[in-house]
Design a binder for these strands. Structure first.
Lengths: 250, 250
DNA sequence: CCAAAAGTGTTCATAATACACCCATGC
DNA sequence: GCATGGGTGTATTATGAACACTTTTGG
């Protein structure tokens, strides 16, 4: 909360009598595209099955109305994330704001969309207040669009509620573009103080949706992170099949 | 405007009786950071001197309330841009949404910020409805922050209204980061069908705030645009001092 | 010994950077 | 002819991608 300092008595009187209802106001929601990493190294998104109208029964990204005056939009997103997943203090960045009239049939709703990257393990998929069903879906995004699937279900992007197809598409595109020059990938590590280069590579591969060459990946990792002191060695793996891997810590 | 198709009669009845006033609603504005190129190849921003409270007399970026239900946020931004500058159909992209409580002392205002790149010449700096004063300012953004200056005036970023310091900083940072892999620079050309490589270089230099090597710039331009067919030759300059330059067209 | 995973080194193509130098024009 | 800006070429280094090969473990 800023502390605005009145610049004159005239201004104070003006502001105290300001009629806030002059312009019609939209509802504002904070919606979140929550990504995590499946056990097979596949990217997953958390979706909620809508229990009420509109789009009842359809899958949607979690979100909710901003408590206007009580919290910032960022805080609303963090609160929603906590409610849906139990997770706090993870990667949560604003993505884009969607404000087409008619995107919600009830009334004008402007949605500020966020992207969250949550390590599997911290994430407890739980039903929200409304006892909605929440599920993780694997995603495959190619030229034909996005397909969502897991053990029980499979559907295409056009079955999503609202304009959530556009939001999820933008979220995937954004993290794909960002990962090569930002440190986003580290946000999906199970343990940021004990990870191997191969574990990190799996995250890059899931996000970029392509196989990477391990020797070259290692070279870039050592050059961009270890040599610059952003990451340091923290021991060795003790068990496992092949040669023990060095562990790193961020 | 989407056309929502009711999935059942039950849903139609629910939606028609939906109480839109359940959640308190914020005011939403579309604000625009309008950049143009000064005659000396310097980057400029359009600012408005506020005629009313709050921050009366301070300089601010243009913007205004979204006509909820009648236009999208994007349309509101385009409308504002037209009103302030007379310009249509130019580069106008959403930047970020600012929603901290208290950023406007009157009431909760959520501002969706946009970045516009307008060629000098098309731009007619004009007073808005409120007969506010509108002026172009040169900007210098270094480690000490932004300084705004022109023939008559000079002030630092902390003198701006609202949180417009943060918005303008983010806008500058964003176009600086984008220019190397997006085609944004072309948006500032006076004539997109008759421009020289040097003219384009001036735009890059203004945005990046650094001098570029002309031979290397030409090489990259020919490789990335001409060779790929995105840009083609369109004649030669006829007048001027040195060797006539080739003209290109996008 | 052999499979599996980690780690090292080499080669080749491309791109970024820094320049030296030549070309066509106006005055 | 010479200053001015346009344009070409070259050498150096950095980066990215492909891949052969070695090392250390478990079984």
């Amino acid at each position: 909360m800023n502390d605005y300092i009145y610049e004159s008595e005239e201004e104070m009187n003006f502001l105290k009598s300001y009629d806030a209802s002059k312009y019609e106001r939209p509802s504002v929601t904070a919606d979140i595209v929550i990504f995590t990493l499946g056990d097979a190294g596949n990217l997953q998104v958390l979706l909620i099955k809508r229990g009420g109208f509109p789009y009842k029964g359809r899958w949607a990204i979690p979100g909710g109305f901003v408590n206007v005056g009580k919290e910032s939009v960022d805080e609303a997103a963090a609160r929603e994330l906590k409610e849906e997943t139990g997770v706090e203090n993870v990667y949560l960045k604003q993505l884009y704001t969607f404000g087409e009239p008619g995107r919600d049939p009830r009334t004008t709703v402007i949605s500020v969309a966020y992207t969250a990257l949550v390590p599997k393990g911290e994430l407890k998929v739980q039903a929200g207040d409304d006892a909605q069903e929440a599920r993780l879906f694997n995603i495959r995004y190619d030229v034909n669009g996005i397909i969502f699937y897991n053990d029980e279900l499979s559907f295409t992007e056009d079955k999503l509620a609202f304009d959530h197809r556009d939001i999820i598409r933008m979220a995937i595109t954004r993290i794909r573009n960002r990962i090569d020059y930002e440190d986003d990938a580290f946000s999906l590590l199970k343990n940021k103080h004990r990870f191997t280069i191969s574990e990190l590579k799996v995250i890059y591969e899931a996000i970029k949706n392509e196989k990477l060459d391990l020797p070259n990946f290692r070279k870039a990792f050592l050059r961009d992170y270890v040599a610059k002191g952003k990451v340091h060695e923290s021991g060795e793996t003790s068990i496992g099949k092949g040669k023990p891997a060095k562990l790193y810590s961020i």
